[in-house]
């Protein structure tokens, strides 16, 4: 009996030690598993932002209790060239608000469906461990609010979307966004962070209202979009809306893809990604030209801006960029850097 007990004890402590080590190396800091992390204090309302902005980094803070308030809407917006389209949204924008939390946070998610909505909506957050990612728990008819809570146990960049049937239609109309779960201690500091989300749009003229476009189911089934867009609108990252950085700064892009159907080949013309958090997870790859962002997936890319100029962001399946709108720009200002890039023009004199 005694021997048995000893053996059991020994094996238990070995097991514990191994688990401890594993957690240590993965997290780099705490030996507490995310499930057991204590979120202390009174619940706070989380800061949310519309694209291309992101909320402040979590930094070094401890796990918290957070309240995330989202409202689902069905509203007309401009899809391209002053053409209106009936978007369905989280918090009135496509993509929906960026949610930024850390591992161990306890989140209460309140989903209110606007009273003027026609349809029920819900939310499935890919950052959630649990049935439907919250979809069944949050199914809200017009005018009603539902709620569920979850603990963030896996760090990464995740898509959330409406999963009310018919799901492709809800996503096709713009019901998606990103939720970032930072690891303990936060992501490394960078100078600029931006939120970009791609989506494919299938349109036809509304029979009800002249000039208005609405979702076309046949085109969606055939996967033949009229528009492939960053941030729900043609030109959302062009002209006055270009994202910006200065020479010498490091830029981090949180890039998601709502789909519903197309996989994005995300590329920044004239830049090489120094770091790519592959598929938004914990594996970091280096020196990447084009990275894949699957429908319902995301990626974090980082690069240092060395040379001033305008850098074009595209889905490198280029017909989408040239013909369907999947194009944006990053404007880098600052001193020229001829050591890295020198555009010499030949003179005839």
């Amino acid at each position: 009996m005694r021997v048995k007990y000893l053996v059991l004890c020994a094996s238990l402590s070995i097991a514990l030690a191994i688990t401890g080590c594993k957690t240590n190396t993965e997290q780099g800091k705490s030996s507490v598993s995310p499930v057991d992390m204590v979120a202390s204090g009174e619940p706070e309302v989380a800061e949310l932002t519309g694209a291309p902005k992101v909320p402040a980094p979590v930094g070094n803070r401890q796990p918290k209790k957070l309240i995330v308030n989202l409202v689902t809407t069905e509203t007309e917006g401009i899809i391209a060239d002053s053409i209106p389209y009936t978007f369905w949204t989280f918090n009135h924008t496509v993509p929906g608000s960026f949610i930024r939390i850390r591992v161990g946070d306890e989140v209460t998610l309140n989903l209110k469906n606007e009273a003027s909505s026609v349809l029920p909506h819900n939310i499935d957050l890919h950052a959630v461990t649990g049935p439907g990612g919250g979809a069944a728990a949050t199914s809200s008819v017009p005018g009603k609010e539902t709620s569920f809570s979850f603990k963030a146990i896996n760090p990464g960049l995740y898509v959330y979307h409406c999963a009310a049937p018919p799901v492709p239609m809800h996503i096709g109309n713009g019901m998606y966004g990103l939720i970032l779960v930072e690891p303990e201690g936060g992501l490394p500091k960078v100078d600029r962070e931006y939120y970009i989300m791609q989506g494919d749009f299938y349109t036809k003229a509304s029979n009800i209202k002249k000039g208005l476009l609405e979702f076309d189911n046949d085109k969606a089934v055939a996967e033949k979009p009229d528009y492939v867009l960053f941030n729900g609108k043609k030109g959302s990252l062009l002209g006055a809306n270009m994202i910006e950085a200065k020479v010498g700064e490091t830029v981090r892009l949180f890039v998601g893809n709502g789909g519903p159907n197309l996989t994005s080949s995300f590329h920044v013309i004239g830049e090489i990604f120094d770091n790519v958090y592959l598929e938004g997870g914990s594996t970091i790859s280096h020196n990447i030209q084009t990275t894949v962002v699957p429908a319902g997936g995301a990626v974090i890319v980082e690069f240092k801006c060395e040379v001033p100029g305008e850098y074009v962001l595209v889905d490198h399946a280029l017909s989408r960029a040239f013909n369907k709108g999947a194009i944006g720009k990053l404007k880098v200002t600052g001193e020229a850097n001829p050591k890295v890039f020198n555009a010499k023009t030949l003179s005839k004199h």
């Binding site: 003027s116 026609v118 017009p142 009310a164 018919p166 239609m169």
Partner: peptide, 22 residues
């Protein structure tokens, strides 16, 4: 899809709910 929408609505209802377009 139209039937999907009706079923989505029905599954989200409770008997005491009152809704602006129901």
């Amino acid at each position: 899809y139209a039937a999907f929408m009706r079923f989505a609505l029905r599954t989200s209802l409770k008997a005491d709910f009152t809704v602006a377009n129901l």
